[in-house]
């Protein structure tokens, strides 16, 4: 599970470099997210622009990461592709995340511009 991180003053962006987060990779995704968010206290934006497919295991893993980071360090999402957006919408999990159209929008929003 390849993740690309970029640390900015007030936000840590994490881009998923895989085309799927599914039952085969959900646990690995959670572990990698734990590693890359260990240091720092910025908000975290998870960019899903490359993710073409998400199943309920992948969705559960993203919720688990949100819980792991805790309320002081909100997990936000960006770049949901059509299939990923559908899974979030049908399970109403779109209501518990702040969702940005793109990582650039998310980062500028976080910087207060």
């Amino acid at each position: 599970m390849q993740l690309k991180t970029q640390t900015r003053p007030k936000v840590l962006t994490v881009s998923v470099m895989e085309d799927r987060i599914d039952a085969a990779t959900a646990i690995q995704f959670k572990e990698r997210m734990r590693e890359v968010t260990r240091a720092g206290d910025q908000r975290v934006v998870l960019d899903l622009a490359r993710v073409q497919f998400l199943d309920s295991s992948g969705l559960g893993a993203i919720v688990a990461v949100k819980k792991m980071l805790g309320p002081a360090r909100p997990l936000e999402l960006s770049g949901l592709t059509a299939t990923v957006e559908k899974v979030f919408r049908l399970t109403r999990m779109d209501s518990i995340f702040t969702i940005h159209s793109s990582i650039e929008v998310a980062a500028s929003h976080a910087a207060g511009t």
Binding site: S56, L59, G60, V63, K67, P71, V87, L90, T91
Partner: peptide, 14 residues
């Protein structure tokens, strides 16, 4: 509350 959010149980709903 965030700590009680579900991490599963979505499959059959989907």
């Amino acid at each position: 509350a965030e700590t009680d959010l579900p991490e599963g149980g979505f499959g059959w709903h989907l």
